[in-house]
Simulated scan of single mutants.
Amino acid sequence: MHLIHTLAELRATLASLPTPRTIVPTMGNLHEGHLSLIRQAKALGGTTVATIFVNRLQFLPHEDFDTYPRTLESDCDKLRAEGCDVVFAPLEKELYPEPQTFRIQPDPAIADILEGHFRPGFFDGVCTVVMKLLQAVQPTHAVFGQKDYQQLAVIQRMVAQFAMPIEIIAGPTQRATDGLALSSRNQYLDDTARQHATQLAAVLKATVELVQSGERNWAQLEANAMAQLNAQGWQADYITVRQRSDLQLPVDQAGALAPLVVLGAARLGSTRLIDNLEFVV
Rank of each mutant, 00 (worst) to 15 (best):
T67P: 04
Y68Q: 08
R70G: 09
S74V: 15
C76R: 13
D77Q: 14
D77Y: 11
D77P: 02
R80F: 04
R80S: 11
E82G: 05
G83D: 05
D85C: 03
V86G: 06
V86S: 04
A89S: 13
P90T: 09
K93S: 12
K93F: 09
K93D: 09
E94C: 02
L95T: 03
Y96F: 12
P97F: 00
P97L: 00
P97G: 00
E98R: 07
P99T: 07
F102C: 09
Q105F: 14
D107Q: 11
D107A: 09
P108F: 05
A109E: 10
L114T: 07
L114R: 02
E115T: 04
H117R: 14
F118S: 06
G121V: 01
G125H: 08
C127K: 05
V129E: 05
V129P: 04
M131P: 04
K132W: 06
P139K: 02
P139S: 01
H141F: 10
A142P: 02
V143L: 01
V143R: 00
V143C: 02
Q146T: 14
D148Y: 13
D148G: 12
Y149A: 07
Y149K: 07
Q150F: 01
A153I: 02
A153L: 10
V154P: 05
R157M: 01
M158N: 05
M158W: 11
Q161I: 09
A163R: 10
A163I: 14
M164I: 09
P165Q: 05
I168H: 04
A170Y: 06
T173D: 07
Q174L: 12
A176Q: 15
A176W: 10
T177Q: 15
G179K: 08
G179L: 11
A181I: 11
A181C: 08
S183P: 03
R185C: 09
Q187A: 15
L189V: 13
L189E: 12
D190L: 00
D191P: 03
R194C: 07
H196A: 15
Q199D: 14
V203W: 01
K205R: 12
K205E: 12
A206D: 09
